[in-house]
């Protein structure tokens, strides 16, 4: 019971400590269990709320930023590199009371195919996000929705930017949570990555 009850004392009552004690006991109980019933509507202000309560600002190794440029050449899925592996962590993340949304952006430039003639195979660049939470790390792909693709061929050098936003829907409770970007290409063309950023936003409550 978070509300205080004021015990009325009437004129003519015996002067005993019982009613004042009852009043004080009510204060004792209530002050230990303050909750929404005690706070005025709209009464809590930003300054009463501890930092990182509603969301966390990523810092340090939680954030990857690198201008690059770095040439990536992976016929099969491998970690993408832009100055360094595009990877963040270790983060502490508990999916039972937090939400994590990953933001990844970069510029890419695909080299022209060295094939000639019509019907030459186009090359396809693919990117996807992976996570690990066991400290080994053992990498798993974040849900299929994170994959991005672009293409080029003999005549068309693809140059553009990509922006991936993904929600981590997997169940995680770890202080060794890591996320990385992977890349692969079909038909063996290199892709140059520049101005890469990878960071999480943890939404609480």
């Amino acid at each position: 019971m978070s509300r205080v009850t004021v015990t009325p004392i009437d004129v003519g009552d015996d002067v005993t400590i019982s009613k004042p004690n009852t009043m004080l006991a009510s204060w004792d109980v209530a002050t230990a269990v303050i909750d929404g019933e005690n706070i005025r509507l709209g009464g809590i202000h930003q300054r009463n709320i501890a930092a990182d309560t509603a969301s966390e600002t990523p810092t340090g190794t939680d954030v990857f930023e690198n201008v690059g440029p770095t040439t990536n050449s992976n016929a099969a899925w491998a970690v993408a590199v832009c100055g360094a592996n595009i990877e963040i962590g270790d983060l502490t993340y508990n999916s039972s009371n937090e939400e994590m949304i990953i933001y990844c952006s970069f510029e890419y430039e695909g080299e022209a195919s060295d094939n000639t003639g019509a019907g030459d195979p186009q090359y396809i660049f693919e990117f996807r996000l992976q996570y690990a939470d066991d400290g080994v790390p053992t990498w798993n792909t974040i849900a299929r929705s994170t994959r991005r693709e672009s293409n080029g061929n003999e005549l068309i050098i693809m140059h553009g930017s990509m922006d991936i936003v993904a929600r981590v829907t997997e169940s995680v409770n770890s202080s060794n949570f890591r996320v990385r970007l992977q890349q692969q290409e079909t038909n063996g063309a290199n892709v140059i990555l520049t101005n890469c950023a990878l960071f999480p936003r943890v939404v609480k409550l």
Binding site: G12, D13, D14, V15, T16, I17
Partner: peptide
């Protein structure tokens, strides 16, 4: 006054 005695408010 004495608390708990014969005093009345």
């Amino acid at each position: 006054m004495t608390w708990g005695g014969a005093a009345k408010w």
